[in-house]
């Protein structure tokens, strides 16, 4: 079906597949050559530590006293310290014990040392980006659906509100919107919350709100176009059976429209994942902000920014695959 307009022999097809791989190889080779040419010492081996690293941890005594006994208990060791007035117990992994029974210890003395795995800052950033994006996408769908339906309503209050919302949000920079959400709305809301003795909302929430409303404006237009692309006869058939407008929307129009708008929605969501990189300006440590921080401490911008791009690619590609799966699953027969 896809190549109805273009017939190709098998040999020609294989040839052009080859051409594709040659192009990919060429680009990769050129990139590699370029990195060799840059006067820069590549230290890729230093990148993994920002994902996962071993942290050295020390267990220190909190009281002054004598070590009563050191008892092995599987991989751990139980150390009991008896002071003049109090006793304390410490459980330490058995690898590196620095005291014996009978030793005298003072507060701050090291009893044992061990190592443990810690999640690095890039991994944390990646997780936060994923979380922020997914929540914003879900809220964006809800907002977009409501705004899209309002957009095609015959009620001028609903319709014009939706148009105004869409035009303002689409027409202004996301950066400015994030600033307004956090520094203007955020200040007002947090002041009100403080007056009523409630917890302050962290910047993350305002970031999510700005992204969700930003995404919602685009989703609204996509939803509107999707609904309008469904043949008028579908609505007429549903209404002629006695369904109300909301019932017809829910059971007949939206299921068909949603299937049709999946591809443009996927594009919008990919865009949103990348837009979340702006949240760094309100101190949300997502992937881009995390990368920037690591770059300042490690002075290895090239590896880290490449890595950052790669991680975004992983997220967006994953999303893209998921939407394609949805498309296949919802395809009729």
């Amino acid at each position: 079906m896809a190549r109805a307009s273009q017939q190709m022999t098998r040999g020609a097809y294989a040839f052009w597949v080859m051409v594709f791989f040659v192009i990919v190889f060429g680009v990769v080779a050129a990139l590699y050559y370029a990195t060799r040419k840059v006067d820069y010492v590549w230290r890729w081996y230093r990148v993994p530590q920002y994902f996962l690293y071993k942290e050295k941890a020390e267990v220190r005594s909190e009281i002054q006293g004598r070590v009563q006994d050191v008892v092995r208990n599987g991989d751990n060791v139980l150390i009991r310290v008896t002071g003049d007035e109090q006793t304390a117990q410490y459980t330490v992994p058995a690898k590196d014990i620095r005291v014996d029974a009978g030793d005298t210890v003072y507060p701050g003395d090291v009893l044992g040392v061990f190592q443990r795995w810690k999640v690095g800052i890039l991994m944390q950033g990646l997780w936060l980006t994923l979380k922020v994006s997914l929540i914003s996408i879900m809220l964006g769908i809800v907002i977009g659906l409501i705004a899209g339906l309002a957009r095609i309503s015959s009620n001028p209050a609903l319709k014009w509100s939706a148009v105004t919302y869409v035009e303002i949000i689409r027409g202004s920079p996301l950066l400015v919107q994030i600033f307004i959400w956090y520094f203007v709305l955020g200040t007002v809301i947090n002041t009100l919350l403080a007056k009523n003795g409630m917890m302050q909302l962290p910047p993350l929430w305002y970031g999510v709100a700005s992204l969700a409303f930003f995404c919602g404006a685009y989703v609204a237009e996509i939803v509107r176009a999707g609904i309008q692309s469904i043949h008028r006869g579908q609505m007429e058939a549903a209404r002629s059976l006695g369904m109300s407008y909301p019932q017809a929307m829910r059971h007949v129009i939206l299921p068909q429209a949603l299937r049709r708008i999946l591809p443009p929605l996927a594009g919008q969501f990919i865009s949103l994942i990348k837009d979340s990189s702006l949240l760094g300006i309100i101190a949300v440590r997502e992937l881009t902000k995390a990368t920037r921080e690591v770059v300042t401490t490690s002075l290895q911008p090239f590896e880290l920014w490449f890595m950052c791009a790669l991680l975004y690619l992983v997220l967006t590609f994953g999303l893209s695959m998921f939407v394609q799966y949805l498309e296949r699953r919802t395809a009729v027969s």
Binding site: G233, A237, G242, M243
Partner: peptide, 19 residues
């Protein structure tokens, strides 16, 4: 909606729900 439920309609282009 009540009236329409009592009045069946058949269209030139069928308008079956494709999904």
């Amino acid at each position: 909606n009540k009236v329409r439920a009592e009045v069946g309609m058949v269209f030139q282009s069928f308008n079956l729900f494709p999904h």
